[in-house]
């Protein structure tokens, strides 16, 4: 089983559009939406939820104000500014470390279990989708990404699927690290813009750091052909394979508005994505 991650560094570069497009073509895959705090893949998959699981986040501190003597030990020991002057816990700042519970001389603080969201295993017209919902203001997105990936792996093993295709979040931090670590290949989606090129290089560094190979897919290449050339030159100089180039086209947004993949929506796009997948598979 091979795990493919779609990443970009920059948001809005076309990760979900490409992941969904692959869904129309790759029949033996499980899909995992690892952009857990702004997930969009379900808007195209229209999944039917078959199984749901509570996601236990980090425990959260709670204060028993009857026992609290306002000694401020907890506030002074908290490294995350999660305790106010009135000894109230700010749950969205609490990282669940337990230092406050440990230092409290009157046992007024307890760490309690916290359901931070849900993960789902769903069926769809493209097969299995594993996705998740993080409750508003919850913290451990990296942990949730790992759970989604593990669940996808379980399903892939159970049904003998050949691929896991992971739609990751933008950036290079916690959820992206959790998405890329241990995968077989990253497809870095990059637009033909200066900002996207900058961000692409950072996400490549993350892949290097975790020793995961990567290929590049250029999106909206016709926005600025010079920038496209710049990406092609950079890839050539660094021995990075380009798996394909997708033009800017209004059909991409039209497909999204209609809840369809660009492969379902447009014949020309379908041919293009098929070629891209062949190139990706060669590198997997």
């Amino acid at each position: 089983m091979k795990q493919l991650v779609i990443a970009s560094g920059k948001g809005g570069a076309g990760k979900t559009t490409l992941a969904a497009a692959f869904a129309s073509i790759v029949k033996n895959a499980v899909f995992a939406d690892c952009d857990v705090d702004a997930s969009n893949l379900h808007l195209i998959f229209h999944p039917e939820i078959k199984e749901r699981f509570n996601f236990k986040g980090m425990d959260v501190a709670t204060v028993d104000h009857e026992k609290c003597i306002m000694c401020m030990e907890c506030k002074n020991s908290c490294r995350f500014d999660a305790i106010t002057e009135k000894i109230e816990i700010l749950p969205e700042k609490c990282e669940g470390c337990g230092v406050c519970e440990y230092v409290c001389p009157t046992d007024a603080i307890k760490m309690v279990e916290n359901i931070a969201g849900e993960t789902y295993v769903s069926s769809s017209r493209f097969g299995w989708l594993v996705h998740a919902r993080l409750n508003i203001g919850e913290e451990p997105s990296g942990k949730l990404v790992s759970i989604v990936r593990n669940k996808a792996k379980e399903i892939a093993e159970k049904y003998g699927k050949e691929f896991i295709i992971i739609d990751s979040s933008p950036g290079v931090g916690c959820p992206v690290i959790a998405s890329i670590g241990g995968a077989n290949l990253v497809v870095v989606v990059v637009e033909a813009t200066a900002a996207a090129i900058h961000d692409m290089k950072r996400v490549m560094e993350v892949a290097n750091h975790f020793k995961v190979p990567y290929v590049v897919c250029i999106n909206k290449y016709n926005i600025n052909e010079e920038k496209t050339k710049e990406i092609e030159n950079f890839c050539m100089d660094n021995g990075i394979k380009i798996v394909g180039k997708i033009p800017y086209d209004t059909v991409v947004t039209e497909a999204m508005v209609n809840g369809k993949t660009i492969v379902e929506y447009d014949k020309k796009m379908a041919e293009l994505i098929e070629d891209i997948w062949i190139n990706v598979e060669e590198n997997l």
Binding site: G12, D35, V36, N40, E92, L134, E139, S141, G171, M256
Partner: peptide, 29 residues
Amino acid sequence: PGNACPTMEAMRDADYIILVTEPTPFGLH
């Protein structure tokens, strides 16, 4: 971007927040 801890930390103490969106299903969601 996103709706997780880094985003919340960035906007927490602001006096005003501008949310930028695009008129698409992904943007709205």
